[in-house]
Amino acid sequence: MKRTILFVLFAVLLLSAVSVVSAETPTAGVIWYNFADTFIQNARQTLLNVAKADGTVEIVDADSQNDIATQTNNINNFYTRGIDYMVLNNINTAAISEIVQTAKDEGVVTIFANTDSPSDEDFANYEGLYLVSSRAPQSGTIMGEAAVKYWNEHPEADRNGNGKMDYIMLLGLTWHYDTQVRAEYSVKAVEDAGIATNRIGGEVVAEYNRGQAQEKVAALLANFSDDIDIIFACNDDMALGAIEALKAGGFFKDEASFLPVCGVDATVVGCDALRDGTLLVTSLNNPVSLGKAIYKTMYLLENGKEVTTETLNMKGATVEGHRIWLDYTAITKENVDDAAYDITDTTF
């Protein structure tokens, strides 16, 4: 009996504590797909820093650990806890409509962040639905266009002279949206330019991991050394792994032994490689812009304003309805300094 009373007392205390918190400042539940992802970590830090400095919306965040089931649990936990905004870095791309419907039922304003866009029907269904995302296909297109440029400027780029661009595609995680669009749109850009392509090694999955990419490329290089014309990698780490393997295989000794390698993310080590002249191109999906755009969207909504390109007022950001698009920036040796950003900057 005593225990029951204690338990009830405890529950009441807990509930009131929660309601006190939610009564003061609006809370946003933020779910990132993986804290260990460098980009996500930076976006997360920016968002936390900006929110701390401003104070209009309080941030609570959760890690899906790259796992759809964990993400689902995180969503449910936030609903149970009671939140005003949900920011979802969704990886369960097959269940977008269901997620939107639940959000509508719960009455929580939901912002899909840096992920596959919900459909027009979803936006029509729930007016509290927003998307803040980079145009993911751009990262692929930037790689493809850089490859086309190099190909056209360097006739010797067709190393085996078969008239086709023979490429290795280093995939991250095959079910991952970024991997899918980067792989698809890079090749599409090449083919749209009228260049025939040939993939070497089939699906080469290196899980965004430098070591794995290094090993896979070393193996492919041992067999197809004279055929490979270019390497596309779905992130910089894999691109750098490929470069390590190429170096060990006798490439990058001089101008003649250059082989174009394309990456995405513009990480610090990636930019280093650009300066060294080993990496051909990378593209920046600015995590600071993402963090700030997410926060500003909530800030505008909280102040009863409409979200438009003008009210948002951020460089490289365009608003189409409830979709807020952030541009990728192509980074090459020439503009490598544009890749720098400061996650401690709290202006927005």
Partner: peptide, 14 residues
């Protein structure tokens, strides 16, 4: 296995 199968260009899935 890792090296050899990549070497002959077999897809990671296989």
């Amino acid at each position: 296995i890792n090296y050899g199968l990549t070497f002959i260009g077999l897809s990671s899935y296989w």
